[in-house]
C-alpha cells in the first residue's frame, strides 16, 4: 500500500456524513419536545393554570371570601355560580382561581428551594466523596428515614400553622431526595475521564463543578424535581386539610377539599372540584416531567 500514505489531514472528510443540522443542547431538547404532543398539551395546561391563578383578581366573578347565606351549596351549573357554591355560599370558581395561587406556590416554591439546597449538598457530597459524602448523606438519611407526609406533619406541627412554616417544612421534606439524586449523578460524573481531562488542564475544582458537574447533574435533578411538584401540591393540600397550612378564610385547594368534605352527600360534584383541580395539576406536572426526561436524554 504505497498509495495509502497521503496526507492525514484529508481523512474523515470526504466520506463523512452529510453535514448534520447542528444545534445547541437546549435547542435539541426542544426539537425532540415539539413532537411530543401529550407533553406539549400538559405544558399548555400548566401555563393556563398558572396564568389563571396569577390573574385571579381579574378572572374571578366574585370575592372568594364573601359568603352568602342565601346561596349555600348550589350545584354545578347554577345561574349565578357556574361551579356551584360551598357551605358558606362562596363561589367555588372564584375560590379555585384564588386557591390556585397558594396551592401552586406551595407546589413550586418548596421544590425550587429544595432543588437548590439539596442540589448543592448533593453535588458537594458526590464530587468530593469520602468523609464529606458520609457526613452529608448520613444526615440526609436521617430525614429520609421518615415518610414524607409524617415528616411534613411533624415539622409543621412543631413550627405551627401558617404559610411560611408550611413552606419551610415542605422544603425540608424535599431536600433529602433531591440531594440523593444530585449525589448519585455527581459521583458518576466524578469518575468520568472528561473530568480528569479538565483537572489535567488546570481547571479549578470550582470551575469543574460549575462547568462539568452542574450541567450533567441538572437534568436528572430537574426531571426529578418536576415529579415532586405534584407531590408538593398534594402534601401542601394535606397540611392545609389538617389545619397546618393556610388559615381558613384564605382559599386553598386542600383546605377547600377539607371543608367541603362534610357536604359530600349534598353536593358530591361540587365537593370534588378542588380535588379535580389538584388531580389535573399533578397529572399535568407528572406528564411534563416524563416528557422532559425523554427529551433531555442526549443520546435518544
Amino acid at each position: 500500500m504505497t498509495d495509502a500514505t497521503s496526507d492525514p489531514i484529508s481523512f474523515d472528510q470526504d466520506a463523512d456524513l452529510p453535514q448534520a443540522v447542528v444545534r445547541g443542547y437546549w435547542a435539541s431538547v426542544w426539537n425532540r419536545l415539539k413532537y411530543d404532543y401529550v407533553t406539549l398539551f400538559c405544558l399548555a395546561l400548566i401555563i393556563l393554570i398558572v396564568l389563571s391563578a396569577v390573574f385571579a383578581p381579574w378572572l374571578a366573578p366574585y370575592d372568594p371570601e364573601k359568603s352568602s347565606m342565601a346561596y349555600r351549596l348550589k350545584p354545578v351549573g347554577h345561574d349565578k355560580y357556574i361551579l356551584g357554591s360551598d357551605e358558606q355560599g362562596r363561589d367555588i370558581l372564584s375560590r379555585i382561581l384564588y386557591g390556585g395561587r397558594v396551592s401552586l406556590a406551595m407546589g413550586i416554591l418548596p421544590v425550587a428551594l429544595g432543588t437548590i439546597i439539596g442540589g448543592i449538598f448533593g453535588i458537594i457530597a458526590g464530587y468530593y466523596g469520602g468523609k464529606v459524602n458520609m457526613i452529608i448523606m448520613r444526615t440526609m438519611d436521617v430525614f429520609f428515614a421518615f415518610p414524607s407526609v409524617l415528616l411534613a406533619v411533624a415539622i409543621s406541627g412543631s413550627l405551627g400553622g401558617g404559610i411560611q412554616n408550611q413552606l419551610a417544612s415542605l422544603t425540608i421534606v424535599f431536600i433529602p431526595p433531591l440531594c440523593r439524586v444530585a449525589e448519585t449523578a455527581a459521583s458518576q460524573v466524578r469518575n468520568m475521564d472528561f473530568v480528569d481531562a479538565a483537572r489535567a488542564s488546570g481547571a479549578s475544582t470550582f470551575s469543574i463543578l460549575k462547568d462539568h458537574v452542574l450541567i450533567t447533574v441538572i437534568s436528572p435533578v430537574l426531571v426529578y424535581a418536576s415529579t415532586l411538584v405534584s407531590a408538593s401540591i398534594l402534601l401542601a393540600s394535606g397540611l392545609s386539610f389538617l389545619g397546618l397550612g393556610v388559615s381558613p378564610p384564605t382559599p386553598d385547594w386542600g383546605l377547600m377539599l377539607s371543608t367541603l368534605r362534610q357536604s359530600i352527600w349534598v353536593q358530591p360534584l361540587v365537593c370534588a372540584i378542588p380535588g379535580i383541580a389538584i388531580l389535573i395539576t399533578s397529572i399535568a406536572f407528572n406528564i411534563v416531567s416524563d416528557g422532559l426526561r425523554v427529551a433531555m436524554d442526549v443520546k435518544s
Partner: peptide, 16 residues
C-alpha cells in the same frame, strides 16, 4: 517510521 496504510474516511451511514 513509515505511515501505516490506513483506509481513509469512515464507514457509510446505514440510514442512507
Amino acid at each position: 517510521g513509515r505511515p501505516l496504510g490506513a483506509i481513509p474516511g469512515t464507514p457509510p451511514d446505514l440510514r442512507a
